[in-house]
């Protein structure tokens, strides 16, 4: 009996302290960490069309079309298929693709979730967080360091 009462007292304590841990989602934007991985943003100006992101992507989310001179023509990314592993950002030597913190995206059909390079370019920052800034201190570990054998596949 004492145990039951203790349990009931605990819930009553929580009811009376008036604290809540849920948030009113659409009204209050949730906090996300600077490292959070959301929808991609792509910079055509930076991209050198090395296709590393396409190669590293585990489930063929990224599709790149180039002409014979290896000039980029298309850069498509199926955001509905992406698993947000961030490997593309990790291997990109020029920071041409970045995962923003933006996690809010909708579409009526699956097709609309296949973003082309223009749509990718126009993905907004979430709360003006620039992921490059937040992740910059760590990027050194990736680019230009280590004597491992380099294989551009």
């Amino acid at each position: 009996m004492i145990g039951i009462l203790k349990g009931m007292a605990t819930t009553m304590k929580h009811a009376l302290d008036g604290e809540t841990f849920t948030v009113e989602y659409p009204d209050t934007a949730p906090d996300v960490s600077p490292r959070f991985r959301g929808v991609h943003k792509f910079s055509q100006e930076r991209c050198i069309w090395c296709r590393q992101c396409e190669n590293v992507c585990p489930n063929d989310t990224i599709q790149i079309v180039t002409d014979e001179q290896r000039n980029g023509e298309q850069y498509n990314l199926h955001i509905g298929q992406c698993i947000y592993c961030r490997l593309c950002e990790e291997v990109c030597p020029v920071d041409a693709i970045l995962l923003t913190q933006n996690f809010e995206f909708t579409a009526d059909t699956k097709d609309e979730l296949a973003y082309n390079k223009e749509q990718l370019k126009n993905v907004p920052w979430y709360k003006d967080i620039d992921p490059l800034e937040s992740r910059e201190p760590d990027r050194g570990a990736w680019i230009g360091e280590g004597e491992g054998e380099i294989d551009y596949q």
Partner: peptide, 13 residues
């Protein structure tokens, strides 16, 4: 509302 109070949620508003 009552259940929400016990479980620290906001519930319908």
């Amino acid at each position: 509302k009552i259940t929400a109070a016990f479980t620290d949620r906001i519930a319908i508003n």
